[in-house]
């Protein structure tokens, strides 16, 4: 039993079959990549995991519980955090505040009315957030406005915001999209470091084969909304069906 079990998921948008009978199992403490050409349904699938979309049929079980019909915040509270294609952070707040908010969400749940105490009196939350920022080497930037960070730092900050909640599953939606090679390598190093330090499962949607093959332990290839193969990176590289459907003439 994987930590994330997807069975027979279908999703149609009007006449388009976005997902057709998707079965997928993500094992605990692995890095599982989902790859496929544009329009293969990768993002649709991911949106079904986090409550943004509800499949027409099928089941998505996380840690033994169904996520279907739950709101994004409820699914997060179950232990799934998500990193977006373009970093989604609180741009009007400081870096430290950005990381303190998920700490509050983790400690107090989806809502708590704490309107009179001062943020500064929450020493434990602050320490936790600072520790996390130290882990991603951003402690010196904690008082900056998040909007003034570089793209790479915004990505780091978003990761810190997800990781500080100690999620069981981290979903990454093209974490290196639009990045220069150096930034991409930094991100890979950061993710590897995270993986080495803690027990965490990662599911990555990625276009960049360099990222996929330097990180993934399992790979699922999606084409036209249906999984073609699921295997180890070495086997995927040489798989004829994958070459045909996705890799084309590219050398990998």
């Amino acid at each position: 039993m994987g930590i994330l079990e997807v069975k027979g998921v279908n999703k149609r948008f009007g006449g388009l079959q976005a997902l057709g009978d998707v079965n997928l199992s993500v094992e605990e403490n692995t890095v599982h990549a989902i790859i496929g050409p544009n329009g293969a349904g990768k993002s649709t699938l991911l949106n079904c995991f986090v409550g943004k979309l509800i499949p027409d049929s099928g089941s998505v079980m996380f840690d033994g519980q169904s996520v279907l019909g739950r709101k994004p915040y409820e699914i997060n509270q179950m232990g799934i955090s998500r990193v977006f294609q373009t970093p989604e952070i609180f741009t009007d707040l400081t870096v430290l505040e950005n990381v303190m908010i998920p700490c509050f969400a983790k400690r107090d749940g989806a809502f708590r009315m704490h309107a009179i105490e001062h943020v500064g009196s929450e020493a434990a939350i602050r320490e936790q957030a600072e520790q996390m920022l130290d882990d991603v080497s951003m402690l010196d930037k904690r008082h900056m406005d998040a909007s003034s960070l570089s793209r790479g730092d915004k990505r780091r900050l978003e990761m810190a915001m997800c990781l500080v909640q100690d999620p069981k599953l981290l979903l990454l939606d093209e974490p290196t999209a639009g990045m220069a090679r150096a930034d991409t390598n930094n991100t890979i190093d950061l993710l590897k470091e995270i993986k080495d330090k803690r027990d965490i499962t990662m599911a990555i949607i990625e276009h960049d084969m360099h990222v996929v093959f330097s990180m993934a332990e399992r790979i699922t290839v999606l084409a036209q909304g249906t999984p073609l193969v699921e295997d180890t990176p070495d086997n995927i590289k040489g798989h004829p069906k994958v070459r045909e459907a996705y890799l084309g003439e590219a050398q990998v």
Partner: peptide, 18 residues
């Protein structure tokens, strides 16, 4: 702070478990 965060990025807020 939560209210300012909602103003800043509603989407991130719900994916942060709030």
């Amino acid at each position: 702070m939560m209210l300012r965060a909602i103003k800043s990025n509603n989407q991130r807020m719900s994916y942060t478990g709030l």
